[in-house]
């Protein structure tokens, strides 16, 4: 047992590492999950009435609220046939006092940029349907993400909430477009329920793979994140395509681990997408029923 004593001596300063490490001996984590298990996820659609689409996702202790608003904008000159999408992440001080004032800005930028890059390709989200009049007018989607509680695995929870909110988004239908001199005259449909929905089939879900010791786990809790060696975030679509990839946090990975991680990531990501789609279908059915109950934060 000399070896384990030396482990003890070495790792004791890592605090949680010790318990996480030893519990892995039975292939189970601190909370009884196996390596590729997610914690319970709750999802509710359409809870912010001022937004065109909204969703709230609660992944154990991680709480994310996403609101999507549409606005009419001018397309960029190099992409005249496309609409626009913008991600804005707000780390609320409700999550942790460290986010007070401008404290959460670094994390917010990191998440926002990564979401932007995973949506960048037309293969993941096609911006062409958002065009109203080529080169003159288009829809701009503001995807505003509010982080209300941090319980680990922010990336995955944020991506689930974003996909759900985009699924819920109603873009008003434009009835007529007329050019009057240089001015555009838009006529929106008079019926507020006359809207169209976005295609979310190819929108990826982000899967964070965290390496702790020799183990690769998904959905790390805040404690597990604290003692991880490195994390890899993979954006996986429903069909198992990887849209983007990013190694976050400090620490390094061996290339072999990277390829192994990708395999696990795709497998988990496909399952996650499927589970989300099913949940969205159920939630949609519930909302269409007569007088659906709104839970919000009251549950």
């Amino acid at each position: 047992m000399v070896k384990s004593t030396s482990y003890l001596f070495f790792f004791i300063s890592f605090g949680n590492f010790l318990s996480v490490y030893f519990i892995f001996q039975n292939d189970l984590r601190n909370d009884g999950r196996s390596k590729q298990d997610y914690r319970p996820i709750e999802l509710e659609l359409d809870i912010v009435t001022h937004a065109n689409g909204s969703a709230r996702v609660r992944l154990a202790n991680t709480d994310i609220l996403v609101g999507v608003k549409t606005e009419i904008d001018v397309p960029t000159s190099n992409r005249p046939e496309e609409g626009k999408i913008e991600f804005f992440v707000d780390c609320s001080a409700n999550a942790t006092p460290e986010f007070e004032g401008k404290g959460g800005q670094d994390l917010a930028t990191e998440i926002g940029n990564y979401l932007g890059s995973s949506f960048a390709s037309p293969l993941s989200f096609d911006l062409k349907p958002l065009c109203i009049l080529k080169g003159v007018q288009c829809w701009k989607l503001y995807v505003d993400i509010l982080i209300l509680e941090c319980g680990g695995n922010l990336f995955d929870a944020v991506s689930l909430a974003v996909k759900a909110a985009l699924y819920n988004t109603m873009v008003p239908r434009v009835e007529t477009v007329a050019m009057d001199g240089g001015n555009v005259d838009l006529q929106l449909s008079g019926d507020p329920f006359d809207c169209w929905r976005l295609d979310i089939t190819n929108i990826p879900c982000l899967v964070t793979l965290t390496k702790i010791g020799e183990h690769l786990i998904v959905d790390p809790t805040a404690e597990e994140e604290e003692c991880s060696m490195a994390s890899l975030v993979v954006a996986v679509t429903e069909s198992g395509r990887i849209n983007s990839l990013c190694k976050t946090s400090v620490g390094s990975l061996h290339p072999q681990t990277l390829t192994d991680a990708l395999k696990v990531g795709v497998e988990v990501g496909v399952g996650l997408n499927k589970a989300l789609n099913e949940a969205l279908g159920r939630e949609e059915k519930r909302l269409q029923s007569n007088k659906p109950e709104r839970f919000g934060f009251l549950k």
Binding site: V48, E71, D90
Partner: peptide, 21 residues
């Protein structure tokens, strides 16, 4: 006692540019 008031950018009819500050 330290207080911070912020508004989600999607909380109002017109989208807000900043949640606080």
């Amino acid at each position: 006692v330290n207080c911070q008031y912020s508004m989600a950018v999607f909380s109002t009819g017109e989208r807000k540019n900043r949640p606080r500050g």
